[in-house]
Amino acid sequence: MQAAHGTTFDGTGAEPPPHGLARLLGRNIFRFIFTIRGLGAFALITLGVMLAKWRSSGQLMRPAIREQIKRSGLTLLPMILFLSAALGFLVIGQAVSWLTRLGAINYLGSIMVLAVVRELGPLLAAFLVLARVGAANVIELGTARATGEVEALEALGIDPVHYLVAPRVVGMAVGVFALTVYLIIGALLSGYLWAFLQDVPLRPGAYLQQLAGALSGLDFALLGIKTLAFGFMVAIITCYHGLAQPLRLEQVPRATIQAVAQSVIACVLIDTVFIIIYLTV
């Protein structure tokens, strides 16, 4: 291909680099802005529908919500217990050797609170729910959209956001919160077990005192808000990519990949906001 300024390029039809790069950057920025706008609108619509219809069709919706809580919470419990054991071993295993060298073993509980309670616990639980349920959400809803099931709901006067999205939002928010609690408890217990096996001179009472000393009321409040925000965001992003735009069947895998990537980014951004809150309060 002969470029306008006389340079020969690779024949792939690509534009000259400066313009091509600018165009690519511009396109991605616009795409990002449109996605943010779409997600924001979808989140507001979902919240509006949940508030307006939270009591309607209870005999149908209550079992649907219970099913989603079971799907995003209870069925993931074995995996969360495995992760909690691994997380406790991992954090304590790394921390013990350094703290022993520094003679600062009294800070073991503080490190567990900083690493597990505030950061890794909520993030791991959110990523697990995203991987096991969020990705399935996009595939289910995207397939329903592509095969006309959403039009069928509309033809029956059933609000797809109320029937398909609201139970998932509640289920994933509650699921991430509950799993985080179990993950933290499991990691704190397995952490002590690992310290005990490494002959760390730390009695259970002293370990609990360290934990209690490192925890504040704000930790509990922020943990609740953060995990609910993670669950809400993962549900909104995965439902948005599955449901909020016309899809053909062959576009479902791409929508799934986009939804998972954006959910990870959203969780990290939410986490960053909470880090700032922790550091400033």
Partner: peptide
């Protein structure tokens, strides 16, 4: 009411649940 050429049934529900869906949703029935 509308009948689609391919039925457009909800595949996560059984046949019975599909038929009962509008009645359960709009009349809040068990």
């Amino acid at each position: 009411g509308m009948v689609f050429e391919t039925g457009q049934l909800l595949h996560h529900l059984t046949v019975g649940e599909n038929i009962a869906l509008p009645l359960r949703y709009h009349h809040n029935l068990g």
